[in-house]
Simulated assay, not measured.
Amino acid sequence: MDAAGSPSDEQLMHAFAAGDARAFETLYDRHTLPVWRFVQRSVNNSALADDLVQDVWFSLARQAPAYEARARFRTWLFTLAHHRLVDHWRTHKNHTSLDAQTEEGATLADTLAAASGFGPERQLTSREQAQALLDALAALPAVQREAFLLQAEGGLSLAEIAQTTGVSQETAKSRLRYARARLRETLEAHA
Rank of each mutant, 00 (worst) to 15 (best):
R72A: 11
A179L: 02
L12Q: 07
L183T: 01
A71N: 06
D50T: 14
A138E: 11
H31Y: 15
Y67M: 05
L137G: 04
Q54W: 00
I161T: 14
V53Q: 09
L134T: 05
H190I: 04
A179C: 04
V43N: 03
Q129K: 13
Q123F: 04
L124S: 07
A61K: 10
L77I: 05
R145P: 02
D87F: 02
E68M: 05
T164P: 11
A4N: 11
V86N: 07
A61M: 10
W57K: 11
R180M: 05
Q144W: 00
P7D: 15
R122V: 03
I161R: 05
E170R: 13
D55W: 01
L80R: 12
R72M: 04
N94Y: 07
W57P: 04
S116L: 11
D50K: 13
D9F: 07
A21T: 07
E10P: 11
G166F: 12
P141L: 08
L140F: 03
A100C: 07
W89R: 15
F24A: 09
A130H: 10
R62H: 03
Q123E: 12
H83Y: 02
Q129P: 02
A81I: 05
H14E: 14
L133T: 00
D2W: 08
L52M: 13
R22N: 13
R145K: 10
E160A: 13
F24G: 00
L60A: 13
F78V: 02
Y28D: 06
F58R: 14
Q123D: 01
H83R: 15
R184I: 00
R22L: 06
V43W: 06
Y178W: 08
E25T: 05
T32A: 15
M13L: 14
L124W: 06
D55E: 13
L149V: 07
A181Y: 09
W76Y: 14
P120I: 00
D110F: 05
V53K: 08
H83K: 12
A152I: 00
E25W: 00
Q123T: 12
W76A: 01
S174L: 07
L112Y: 07
G5F: 08
E128G: 03
R177F: 07
L134V: 08
A191D: 12
D2H: 09
S157N: 06
S116H: 10
S126D: 10
V143H: 13
V86S: 01
D29G: 11
L112F: 12
D29N: 14
A172Y: 06
E185N: 14
G5D: 11
T79Q: 15
F118T: 09
S46P: 10
A61N: 00
R74S: 13
T125E: 14
A3E: 14
A47S: 10
A66L: 09
A113E: 12
R22E: 15
T79I: 00
A3V: 03
W76M: 02
A142S: 12
L98M: 06
R62K: 08
T165G: 06
R84E: 12
E153Q: 15
G117S: 06
R37G: 02
F78P: 03
V39Q: 01
L124E: 15
G117R: 03
L134G: 05
T75H: 10
G5A: 08
M13K: 09
L140S: 01
G19K: 03
L133N: 01
F73E: 04
V53P: 01
R177N: 06
D99M: 04
H95F: 01
A139I: 02
D20W: 05
A130V: 10
